[in-house]
Design a protein around this nucleic acid. Structure first.
Lengths: 190, 190, 190, 190
DNA sequence: GATGAATGAGTGTTCATTCAT
DNA sequence: CATGAATGAACACTCATTCAT
């Protein structure tokens, strides 16, 4: 008996992201993704129950990878602002290095699939960040507003800035990244 | 492709937005949209060259409506912050009143169609806002950073906050809207 | 606008029966049926909601034709036995002339589709026959047993006899048909 | 295609009958049958050359079982009518106890597979019955008509009566079974 | 001997678009 | 101008069967 191939699993993940990025969510078909992954369309169904399952698990995989990277090397003993800086730059770097992951995520989030995601599970991946914000609020370092508002002003702009597709008017320099973080921090600091 | 009936034109616009919102970009078909608009699929082709043209002109129409609303009642003689406040609240109100327009826009922006939009034309719709920002920078009221960075921190978070689909953890109160504007302004003010 | 084509409807009916007869219920595919009917598989869907609908309405159409033929020229004033004879020979002739209709019916009846047929509706097509049987029972001409039992012994054997596929050992002569009716009548007469 | 495990052989037989009964000939697939039998699809090919072989040998197995049961306990010294009664009730009981076997047989008989069956071989299983009929004809107890006609009127109705799927209007009582045999016998007796 | 992974060929169905009316 | 019938191409998915383990 042949055993399930870890490489094919990964190839399907990469192919899904690539195809969706190249031709869009709407035009992405199972056979195109399979072809890109170098397997038969039928083989795809040994690894995923159906197309929906393929797309959903691709999304979850991206979120898992994002969470792992963003929360890496966090030193909880540092001052709040420094922790924030660390997280913020982690995110910026990840979005800049994997614009395709983010492009996929945006298409997915705006599709009806999104409502079939267990949002609690996603939230759990990022609880450390929410905890830091709450700690900052308690310590009167961060404004006392709803956590979701903080997140919207600190992290979402990054997705725009790091995405050359959306922000093609200029090339973001190191200095500008630094400026951007300053804006993010000014927005939320007390 | 002659345009005789203004009502059908509008019906097709509304139907396109509604169908795309209900079943997503990927599942939206010409015949479903035509049915929703109460016309035959063939009739649709009297008003639009093809499906792409339908989607693109729907997007442009949304952007035009957005631009008209956001820039409405702007009193250029007011202080920069007040003008900003006005624009920001205009945007917030529009996104809150037309979540479907924004949902459509997001799906469209993240699709390959987006690259076929004349971006210059969109930019032109919002030049007054860019002008205000530049004036604010000159007057040393706003930080001296790239206009796109300002926009990313001031306006993009609004889309998140005003969208109950993305921000379902809490219901945004009047006070929270006010707080949010404060964050936006703190981010960019010198 | 093109109008729905009565000929195509009939062509699809004939094609369905023919293909199912040639290659069997299990192997009959929409595309093979469409090809036999001389239309595109897509066209089939303007005439039938789906494959199930095609098969079910083909079955119902056969039953309707059968009912019309079998009950034709019935003279209710004749003696019971003569009416019976008339019906029985009508049925025999129809099965002999349309073995394909019966082959299709048999395959259909033994498929899970059968349970989705409104059996009452079918029964209604043949109520005149049930009425005759009941009259015969009242007049003490026919044995006083359940109508379904009468039907099973009088009419079902015909399907076998008239079907050369099932009864290939001998060619049924006129005399043998007469004999067969005698058996049927002897079975039920008092 | 070596035959090692008698239990698996039987499991496959039962699974084939069960699956075909549950979802029909058309929808029955090798993998569903294998799953029902608790083996891998690949294993099935150790016991049968291919799907056709599986179906055909299932059919032959049913016929063999039927023949064994129907001809059981036949006492050739009894009067013709009593022998007939015995056979007829054997058949009735078997069809009533194994409606699934008959449902399968009906589906099979009406499929193109049927023509690939060696009909002679089937006939040979039931020669004792044909012999009895011929003896009855010689003894002037049974009408002098073709054996196949006799069979059609005596045995085929049983399949209808014993099948609750086809005869659901009433529940067959003991008395009715007795009546039915009377009809069968009246049909053929001189 | 037994297995599940693998697949080319096929399934039923919908698609964007055209065309006769 | 408006329509629904028509279709080739594509869709998501399942099939019977083979093959490496």
């Amino acid at each position: 008996m042949r055993t399930k191939d870890e490489e094919k699993q990964e190839a399907l993940f990469e192919a899904t992201v690539k195809v969706v990025n190249q031709i869009g969510f709407a035009s992405s078909s199972v056979s195109k993704i399979a072809q890109e992954a170098g397997v038969s369309p039928a083989t795809l169904y040994t690894y995923h129950k159906n197309k929906d399952d393929l797309l959903i698990s691709t999304y979850l995989s991206i979120k898992r990878r994002l969470s792992a990277i963003v929360l890496r090397d966090i030193d909880a003993t540092l001052p709040i602002r420094d922790i924030f800086r660390q997280v913020w730059f982690n995110l910026f770097r990840f979005t800049a290095e994997h614009p395709d992951y983010f492009h996929f995520s945006e298409q997915f989030s705006n599709s009806p699939f999104f409502e079939r995601i267990n949002q609690k599970e996603i939230d759990r991946m990022f609880t450390p960040i929410a905890d830091i914000i709450r700690r900052g609020i308690t310590l009167k370092i961060i404004k006392n507003v709803e956590v979701d508002i903080i997140l919207a002003f600190v992290f979402y702009p990054v997705i725009i800035l790091a995405n050359p597709r959306l922000c093609k008017n200029f090339h973001v320099t190191e200095a500008q990244v630094e400026q951007s973080f300053q804006l993010a921090w000014d927005a939320i600091k007390l």
